[in-house]
């Protein structure tokens, strides 16, 4: 392919993908009346949209809620996922393959089918309007098990055997031998669980109705469709921008990990 053409296409693509975000960022600093116009830069810079967001919703608190939920879910998915993945690859026990197939099956059932019964279960446990209801159902993650299992398969079994003969307990083998060898897979699984959980909206909308325990995507979505934004565009965009910002920053900082992680999930999932 010709170089100039390639660059034109690449730059065009970059504009298509990045320009909306740039526009959104600048629009949040415009006076409300100006947002509909085509000019990219605000005629006068104002923080009015942000003031309205912070006045109407506890968005800072929702950020912390999201952070707590996503950190616990991610670490738990990695811990229990690697335990299961290790059992599936390095321990021979009856029912191992059946167990693995069950996990594969769970991935094919759409979440929507389970939504209502799961909600009633959460109601029975009294976990509505709490972070527990957002965390516990997602503490295990099938994708994480799959990714970790794939990685553990490549660790030579004789290595594990040698460790066993040396008297290492299974716990020690997992944490001191298998984990250090599986940092890339742990990162991959961690990032996938993290992003998926961070962006989840539907489940929090059902389980949490109390503003104090809402997650950030939920709060922004409700702010936008509910009456909170008072049909003003500026605050909606400002809230959306604040929701996107943490993950964009995280992505720009660790973009190599993000990209390779998500690509592997595609290959293996």
């Amino acid at each position: 392919m010709k170089k100039p053409f390639a660059y034109i296409a690449l730059v065009g693509g970059a504009l298509v993908f990045a320009y909306p975000f740039v526009w959104m960022m600048l629009a949040t600093f415009k006076p409300e009346m100006e947002i509909g116009r085509l000019a990219l830069l605000p005629s006068e810079w104002t923080l009015e949209s942000y003031r309205l967001v912070f006045e109407s919703i506890p968005i800072g608190r929702s950020f912390l809620n999201s952070l707590v939920v996503v950190l616990i879910v991610t670490s738990s998915a990695l811990l229990f996922g690697s335990m299961a993945g290790y059992a599936f690859t390095k321990i021979n026990f009856r029912g191992r393959d059946a167990g693995y197939n069950i996990i594969l099956f769970t991935m094919m059932v759409p979440f929507m089918v389970l939504l209502i019964p799961l909600y009633t279960l959460i109601v029975k446990f009294g976990w509505t309007d709490s972070l527990v209801g957002l965390i516990v159902p997602f503490m295990m993650n099938a994708t994480a098990v799959l990714i970790l299992r794939q990685s553990f398969l490549t660790i030579p079994t004789d290595l594990i055997e040698a460790a066993r003969i040396d008297g290492c307990s299974e716990w020690r083998i997992l944490f001191t031998i298998v984990w250090p060898l599986s940092i890339p897979a742990l990162t991959t699984a961690g990032i996938i669980v993290f992003i998926g959980n961070w962006n989840e909206v539907l489940w929090p909308i059902m389980v949490v109705r109390n503003e104090d325990w809402m997650t950030m995507p939920q709060m922004v979505a409700l702010f936008s469709v509910g009456g909170g934004a008072q049909s003003k565009l500026g605050p909606q965009l400002a809230a959306a921008f604040m929701l996107g910002l943490p993950i964009i920053i995280a992505f720009l900082l660790f973009q190599r990990h993000f990209i390779s992680s998500l690509a592997t999930s595609g290959l293996k999932g």
Binding site: I72, S76, W127, S130, L131, V132, G133, I135, M139, W213
Partner: peptide, 8 residues
């Protein structure tokens, strides 16, 4: 988990 989130 309960300690961290039990305040809900």
């Amino acid at each position: 988990v309960l300690v961290v989130t039990g305040c809900g």
